[in-house]
């Protein structure tokens, strides 16, 4: 295997953060459907809460695209030749957002679902439900930050 293969595996692994988002958004969606069943007017508000666990997938996508740009996959210039060490370095960059993204997405989905329940019972308390879900997101943001800082400071 050359370094290029490892870099591409890294790009793919970063995109896996979407798994967490998909599950999280799914969990929140189930709760939202229950609440909207009782009061259809709450659709728009539940949608906001349901969207919250969706960000991990986006963070994963960001890292994937940045890896693409970094290794020259996008832009028509052709892929750079990477050594084994460089390829593994790129791969390492993808790990934080992938692993934290998956688990935090699921956990945030659960928190968002609880927030949606809260919205169902006390409409005026929606803001607090959003904040609870956002507490989880902090760790996905940190993981993104670590991935980004690693990638930006690669030095090749």
């Amino acid at each position: 295997m050359t370094g290029n293969v490892w870099a591409l595996i890294g790009a793919a692994v970063a995109a896996l953060a979407g798994v967490g988002s998909a599950m999280g958004v799914g969990i929140a969606g189930q709760a939202a459907a229950g609440v909207v069943g009782e009061d259809p007017k709450k659709f728009g508000r539940t949608l906001i809460l349901q969207a919250l666990p969706g960000t991990q997938g986006i963070y994963g996508l960001i890292v994937t695209f940045l890896i693409f740009i970094r290794i020259g996959l996008l832009g028509g210039g052709g892929m750079k030749d990477l050594t084994m060490a460089q390829g593994l370095y790129v791969f390492a960059c993808s790990l934080p957002i992938c692993i934290v993204g998956i688990w935090s997405g699921i956990a945030q989905g659960k928190a968002a679902a609880a927030g949606i329940m809260l919205l169902g019972k006390r409409e005026d308390q929606m803001g607090k439900g959003i904040i609870y879900a956002a507490m989880v997101e902090t760790y996905a943001i940190f993981a993104l930050l670590v991935s980004l800082l690693m990638l930006f400071n690669l030095g090749f």
Partner: peptide, 23 residues
């Protein structure tokens, strides 16, 4: 204090996604 790192991370997220859209 570290929590304020999100100012950077979210700012970068907007910028990078916008760049991806443009690309």
């Amino acid at each position: 204090i570290l929590s304020y790192a999100r100012l950077l991370a979210l700012g970068l997220a907007t910028g990078v996604i916008a760049q991806v859209v443009n690309t």
